[in-house]
Every structure is written in C-alpha cells, then in structure tokens.
Design a protein around this nucleic acid. Structure first.
Lengths: 151, 151
DNA sequence: GCAGAACGCTTGCATATGCAAGCAATACGC
DNA sequence: GCGTATTGCTTGCATATGCAAGCGTTCTGC
C-alpha cells in the first residue's frame, strides 16, 4: 500500500509535468497559427463532440474545469468573430446554448492538424506503437465515463 | 504513420484532460488545507529537489513553464511568510536565488501528503500494480532529461 | 397554483499571469 | 580594457480567471 502510494505520487507528478509541457508548446503554436488559445481550442472541440454541436454554458464550464463566468467571457469574442452562435434553450429559457458554426468547425479542423503535429513531436521516437496503445488504454480508464472526455 | 498520429493525438488529449482534472482536485485541497496554490507547491518542490535547496528565479521560471515576472510575484508573498529566503548570487550578482527555508520544507512535507492522497484517489481501483509501473516507465521517457523533472 | 429553493447566466471586484520596457550586472568581440 | 550585447530581475499595462452577488427562469413541496 505504501509502495502503491509512492508510485501513484510519481505518476501524478509526471502526468502533470508532461501535460504542462505539452500545453506550453501548444499555446505558442495555436496563438501564432490560428489566433486561438488552448482553452478556446478545447471549447470548440467540446462543442464539436456534443450532440447537435451545442452545449449549455454550464456544461462547458464543468467539462473544461473552469467557472461559468469564464465561459461567458470566453464565448463573447468567439461569437463576435463567428466561431460560435448563441441560442436560447427551447424547453428551458435559462439555458443559453453555445452552438458551433461552420466557420467554427473549419477553424477547429485547422487547429486539429496543429494539435496532431505537436502531439506527434512529443511522443516521437520515445514509444513503440504497442506502448502507445498501452498508454491510451491506461489513460482511457482515467477519463472514460466523465462527461469531459473527448475521446 | 497516419495511425500513429491518430493515437498520439488521442493520447495527448487524454493526457491533458487527466492532468486538468487532477489539477482541479488538488487546487481545492491545497487551498483549503495548506493555503497553497498548486503552483506554489510545485515551486517549493522544485527548490527541495535542487542542489542546496536553492535556484535562480530564471531557472524556476523555465522549469515551471511560467514567465520570470510570475516567479517574482509568486515568491514575494512566500518570502513574506517565511517559506523561502532571498540570496544574492556569489559569483553573479544578477542572480537572486530563491532558497527553501526550514518552514518551507515543513510546509512542503505536509503538502506532499495531500498530494499523495489525491494521487491515490485518482488511480485507485483503476490500475493494477504492474500497470502503474508501466505507466511510470512510459511517462518517465517524456520527462526524463528535462531540467523540470522532479522524479 | 404558489411561495421558496434551486438553477443558469452575467457582472463587479480581486487575483494571477504574460509581454515589453527598464535597470543593473556580466560576457563578448576587438 | 572598452563598448556593446546579453542576461537576470522587476514593474506597468493588458488579459484571463475565480468568487460572490444579482437577475430571471424553472422546479419542488404543499
């Protein structure tokens, strides 16, 4: 048990450090190439993954681990440049759905290519194909079932 | 090759989402129990891991993937409450070393327990011991050799 | 049905962070 | 050695984000 705690601690550390490094790389690339922040990319991706390409703000907040006010403020400029639209909930007038537009889907597609490229850089020459699959399976158990999961 | 890019993309996504979730959990726990932010915890941990328990600000910035000004502003209150000290570089007067104090080391030790606890929660009942070791080995190849690595 | 609780969204304020400019110290080219 | 470039740190300004309060809508207990 003590041994498991020890390795869990190391794994959690390495997990966070790897993610931090990847985020730092992506941050620069997205800003330069697409004028997007990493969080804006994830927001578009959540919408694209959702049924009907739309989600209430509160649901976006939960999935992205940010506050509702952050969503309000992130969405405003994205709406202004046409990446998303606003739509009032049909059954519940409290809901202000964020809807992915054609333009937003196009921007997302471009950004996916950048993401894939940098993901490739990170893992390149470090793992075999079989190890990549092991890693995928292990991580899947951490994120599967959560509403935030994009895969 | 296309298949490898595909799985790399999925792995990068899951990596970032797992880390985000862990960070969100830790953020609340550290704030409530120790009055620390996650980044302050990592700063203390970097100092503790460094030879002589001290590092120049610029080195902390690189390892933590933040700007130098962020380090300046993070360190100020930590110095005020005695977690760290300031020391001018002996051979290079430009350097303003951040030094871990006894109090800082004590606080870090408390925080490590909280970290370990939540790391345990995250992985609990999801992976076998052997899978934990595989995961550790795979992640190690991502972070090993980087100055930021704490393990 | 109605009153109060709960929910979804927005906004004011406080904090956190990056970038660029500025300052002091060191390194480099000659 | 000297002048210039580089480096390390700090600070002003702009942006990003969380929390709490406020407002409108829906749900719940009765």
């Amino acid at each position: 048990m003590a041994a498991m705690t020890q390795i869990d601690t190391i794994n959690a550390l390495r997990l966070m450090q790897s993610a931090d490094e990847l985020r730092a790389r992506l941050s620069g690339a997205f800003a330069a190439v697409h004028g997007l922040s990493v969080n804006e990319y994830f927001l578009l991706k959540q919408l694209n993954h959702a049924p009907g390409n739309r989600l209430p703000r509160v649901e976006l907040a939960k999935r992205m681990h940010v506050s509702a006010s952050t969503i309000t403020r992130m969405v405003a400029p994205m709406e202004k440049i046409g990446l998303v639209d606003r739509e009032t909930g049909a059954r519940d007038a409290r809901l202000a759905l964020v809807v992915l537009t054609k333009a937003g889907a196009g921007k997302l597609k471009d950004a996916e290519a950048t993401f894939a490229m940098h993901a490739g850089y990170i893992f390149e020459d470090r793992w075999t194909q079989s190890e990549r699959e092991q890693f995928s399976e292990l991580l899947n158990r951490l994120v599967a079932g959560t509403p935030a999961s994009l895969t």
